[in-house]
Structures are given as structure tokens and as C-alpha cells.
């Protein structure tokens, strides 16, 4: 069974009600746009990390964000996920949900998952426990105090373990995994939360060529069911997965389009690709 099938199956089983627990609130996507970012500016001590940035992510698309260091990619993710408050601007999830002013936890519960640049997992706990905690369930205090793992939840964890290739490592401490495996575990933690929008920051950093290929396959298979935004430096990787690429430069969008459009855009060549050659 290819990984694509595994993921498809996992997604289907989820939709057929394997996990009856919580439903993400209805998101109004009547205009096909899942995420609106408009006129966003963030500055740190006078340095403009984001400068009047506009970005629209359609429902179900796989979008790649590229840009040199300091272009504002991670800051953008911080704003979307509630970690950083912008000076000015709007961020809407669907037509109606204003993300600004919500906490990280509230935004996560709306169905926005995030993978950090540096793989961040619960190192002192087993791979299994990491997935258990990330699962889409009620995250309130009383329900975690009395939570029992149901057979369907166990199945779901087991499927995700298959997908991320850590089935045989499920008892290991997450801290004992290799760098690439941690990246995968973190992606697994995203998957198991069944997010509507996945923000993935440098997913293939530190991965072998083979692992990179599998990651590309996984992310591509997820698009459609979910919306995926990937930040990546690895141009080869971006080329292999991207349909639409957005180039950030000094906190604003410099260009947007297919990979070949972007590569041929003179402004991009000058400020970004030009530097590489």
C-alpha cells in the first residue's frame, strides 16, 4: 500500500466518524478562500518584519512560501497562529472568523495546526503519548483528567504511526528519535489533530533525500482534503510539490504564481534567486 492510500484511508475513516469527539466549528468558505491576510504589518523595535502584507490561501490548496532569511515567513506564521500580535492588519479564517485576538490554543482548536522550524515534540514522553496529546479531542482540564483512550482513538493513532513510519518506535521517548524522525513525528502530531489548515515550517530540514521524497509525497496527498502552507528553503523540494508559490521579500509579497512564473520574474531573480547563483 502506498503512503497516499494510507493517508486517504486515514482521512476517510476520520470522516466516517471514527472520531466522534469534537467537530471544528463551521468555517464559511463561500468564496473559496480559507485564509485572508490583509494589510498586515509587524515591527520589532523599529524593524519591519511584515510590511503591509496581503495573502489569500484558497481552501484545499498547497501553497509554498519562499523568501530569504528575514523575509518574514516565520513572523507571518506567528501572527496567524496567535503567537505575535500585529501592529495593523486583518487575519480571517474563512469569511467570518477573526483570528487576531484569539490565543494560540483557541486558534489550534479552530483547526489550524503548526509545525515549527525546529522540530518541537515532547521529548520526555513516548512517541505514542505525543500523538495521544495532539489528537483532536476535548482539551479541557476535566476531560483530560478523566480521559480514557477509546479503541477508535487507538486505531487512529496506529494509522498515523503507519503514515509517519514510526510504528515500530511508538514506545520510544520522542527525545531519542533522530532529527528526521522528530520532523515526522511533528507532522504526525499535525495530522492527528485533523486540522483544516496546516502551517508547515521547513519540514525537510535535516532529512535524507529519501525522507524528503516521502515528505513531498505526504504533503501532496494531504492537499485537497486539507489546506497546506509550506515554508521551505530547499528549492528542489519546493519545485517538487508546489503548484502556487508566494515569494516574500522584506515583509511583503514580491511575487506569486507557478514555480516557473516566479522563477522567471525579474524582481524575484534580482532579490532572491539571483543571490543564489
Amino acid at each position: 500500500m502506498t503512503m497516499f492510500d494510507t493517508v486517504k484511508q486515514a482521512v476517510q475513516s476520520l470522516h466516517t466518524g471514527l472520531l466522534p469527539e469534537t467537530k471544528h466549528p463551521d468555517i464559511d468558505i463561500s468564496h473559496q478562500v480559507l485564509l485572508y491576510v490583509e494589510g498586515l504589518s509587524v515591527s520589532f523595535d523599529g524593524f519591519k518584519a511584515l510590511n503591509d502584507l496581503n495573502l489569500y490561501i484558497n481552501d484545499g490548496e498547497l501553497r509554498c512560501l519562499i523568501g530569504a532569511n528575514g523575509a518574514g515567513k516565520t513572523t507571518l506564521m506567528d501572527v496567524i497562529t496567535g503567537k505575535t500580535r500585529p501592529d495593523i492588519g486583518d487575519v480571517y479564517f474563512g469569511q467570518t472568523i477573526d483570528l487576531l485576538g484569539k490565543t494560540e490554543a483557541e486558534i489550534a482548536q479552530l483547526g489550524i495546526g503548526r509545525k515549527f522550524q525546529k522540530p518541537t515534540v515532547f521529548e520526555e514522553q513516548s512517541v505514542f503519548a505525543n500523538l495521544e496529546l495532539a489528537m483532536k479531542v476535548n482539551k479541557g482540564i476535566t476531560s483530560t483528567l478523566f480521559a480514557r483512550l477509546s479503541p477508535s482513538e487507538l486505531d487512529w493513532i496506529s494509522q498515523v504511526l503507519d503514515t509517519i513510519g514510526l510504528k515500530s518506535h511508538y514506545r520510544m521517548l520522542a527525545g531519542a528519535l533522530s532529527h528526521g524522525q522528530k520532523q515526522w513525528l511533528e507532522i504526525g502530531m499535525l495530522l492527528i489533530a485533523d486540522p483544516r489548515l496546516m502551517l508547515v515550517d521547513e519540514p525537510v530540514a535535516g532529512m535524507t533525500a529519501q525522507e524528503t521524497e516521502r515528505t513531498a509525497e505526504l504533503l501532496t496527498s494531504l492537499a485537497g482534503e486539507r489546506t497546506v502552507v509550506v515554508v521551505e528553503h530547499d528549492m528542489e523540494f519546493v519545485r517538487s510539490i508546489a503548484k502556487t508559490v508566494t515569494v516574500l521579500h522584506q515583509g511583503s509579497v514580491l511575487a506569486e504564481g507557478s514555480m516557473s512564473d516566479v522563477q522567471n520574474n525579474p524582481a524575484v531573480i534580482e532579490v532572491y534567486l539571483g543571490e543564489e547563483q
Binding site: 490554543a105 482548536q109 518541537t120 515532547f122 495532539a134 482539551k139
Partner: peptide
Amino acid sequence: SRFGRVVVGIRDAEDRARFIGFKT
């Protein structure tokens, strides 16, 4: 309990716990 695992998670990676939806 799962509560205990959340708490240990908060100890080791509070941001991670927040971004998977726990009001730490």
C-alpha cells in the same frame, strides 16, 4: 492521567502544548 501528560508536555515544550490546543 492524560492531564499529567499534558502537564509534563507543558514543562518540556510549552509552545508545542499551546499550538496543539491546550490552554496551558
